[in-house]
Design a protein around this nucleic acid. Structure first.
Length: 111
DNA sequence: CTTATGACTTTCA
DNA sequence: CTGAAAGCCATAA
């Protein structure tokens, strides 16, 4: 098995269906690297803007379903907006945004 | 080649 | 139950 590269992460992220979300760890697991959750976050952070635009990065949240992005150019507000645009309900709690994983978590790739 | 970092996750106190 | 710390991996410098 090759090393987990950003490209793999991006491709896996692109496979997330509409109205579904996946955790960073889940993406890593689907790629075959259960402990590379941080790579996923960083991969998206290091992703070119062009690629990022076509990438459903907003469907990737942390394990709690919380929008944990710290990227100044791609804020939680933007992510929330993109999700609601798809019809995904986003809860606003104490200034943070949460997603109902029981309802929206991606259940594919568990072949 | 070595050190530092990041949009995470899990475990210990 | 809540909070803090370590673990993890690939990339950048």
């Amino acid at each position: 098995m090759e090393s987990l590269r950003f490209e793999m992460i991006w491709e896996m992220t692109e496979k997330i269906p509409r109205k579904k979300v996946a955790s960073y760890g889940q993406i890593a697991i689907l790629c075959g690297f259960p402990r590379a959750a941080r790579l996923v976050g960083w991969a998206l952070h290091a992703c070119p803007e062009e690629r990022l635009i076509a990438l459903p990065w907003h469907r990737v949240v942390n394990k709690e379903g919380r929008l944990s992005t710290t990227c100044l150019d791609h804020t939680k507000d933007l992510q929330k907006w993109l999700l609601e645009k798809e019809g995904v309900k986003v809860k606003t709690i104490h200034g943070n945004f949460f997603i109902d994983l029981k309802k929206y978590q991606w259940r594919a790739g568990i072949v």
